[in-house]
Design a protein around this nucleic acid. Structure first.
Lengths: 200, 200
DNA sequence: ACGGTAAGCTACAGCCGTGTACTTAAGCAA
DNA sequence: TTGCTTAAGTACACGGCTGTAGCTTACCGT
């Protein structure tokens, strides 16, 4: 009795990817701490029993979802525009941080109770797939072409852009504009690789 | 009946500051999301009823604790050692981030469900009390004494050190060493104010 | 067409945090 | 000492999430 759902019953792949999508959204919204089977089930429109058939607790679902994440897009350095490519790399980063996947990762990384297991799953699955950080891909490209000495591309320098963007995202409610990103590139990254503000 | 606690019953100031201490520890450990009256009460060794007499929910207790936080120590620039003073400022920051108060603030700032009210309370109470960020206090001091043009001390530049330290604290399990901080100062901050690695 | 597999659905007991009511007892001041 | 104030301690009903059980029903391969 009762109206059967107009939507057809989902199975296998389709159902699972719907659940993965749901966990990521859920964790981005409420955080790892408030993650519940109930919440995931409601968001994915599936009963908890279906979840328990495959996973034993919310974090398992989350880890599984991370394992199926599509790798993050990498910046593709252009011909001869270091400054522009850096800004585009940071823009890519900002967009990713605003996406469900990015917000999920942020929620996980900053959870006070995160375990080494979770951190490890994250780094293996989400970051290791990529060549490196957003800006370091660009920086390496230009260093190899002699735009600046590759010795200057230290771990610290490779992190400058990401660090400043991250801080902006935490401090301010509004995501950084292109002008903000340009300021980061010009005032922090370029000086660090010996390309001061004078050399346009 | 039963053994009365050997400890004398606490009242007023003493009790409240014990509760404040407890909330900060609790939130640093479990995060804002998992904050409960029960947890606070257990940690402060006081029944929930006492908490409800003054506050209506765990976040209220937290906000009240923040209002009673001692201001963070400010770096005191020395005579003529910009590099050393910057490192000391970052060390001060790291130590604070490792303290209960600092970890509490981190937990609050990164909570996916933080409200504007909470952010505002934080900034007013914890940050506004200070002159500025850790490194900017030092940087301003040396800029005013002509060590570098003050126009270079932009908001982005003032954030470089804090941003890199924060990222390090999130990424790595181990807090940065003095060498790490020195690398940040030399490779990121000093270049940004026009004092490259050449000028020692 | 049929039967197996797996998803949808409901129900239930258990645990934990909540918020309140009420009693007991310690500290403090007149 | 007396009495007011306030914390300690106990008890209870409520609600949400949990994990499981048992059943119904849709999908899908043979």
């Amino acid at each position: 009795m009762g109206d059967h759902n107009a939507r057809t019953r989902r199975r296998g792949e389709e159902l699972i990817s719907a659940i993965h999508k749901a966990v990521l959204e859920e964790v981005a919204e409420v955080g790892v701490a408030r993650l519940t089977m109930d919440g995931i089930g409601k968001r994915a429109a599936t009963p908890r029993t279906t979840l328990y058939r495959r996973w034993s607790d919310p974090v398992e679902v989350l880890l599984d979802a991370l394992h199926h994440l599509h790798p993050v897009e990498e910046p593709t350095p252009g011909a001869d525009d270091l400054r522009g490519d850096l800004i585009r790399a940071l823009r890519l980063m900002v967009d990713w941080m605003l996406s469900p996947a990015g917000r999920a990762v942020a929620a996980i990384l900053t959870d006070p109770q995160r375990t080494p297991q979770i951190s490890q799953a994250l780094f293996e699955r989400v970051f290791a797939e990529r060549g490196g950080t957003f800006t370091s891909t660009v920086l390496r490209h230009y260093a190899e072409r002699g735009h600046f000495p590759i010795e200057l591309l230290t771990p610290v320098v490779a992190d400058i852009g990401e660090a400043l963007v991250t801080k902006r995202m935490i401090d301010a409610a509004v995501p950084p504009s292109d002008d903000d990103l340009a300021a980061i590139v010009e005032q922090a990254i370029l000086p660090a690789i010996g390309l001061g503000r004078t050399s346009s």
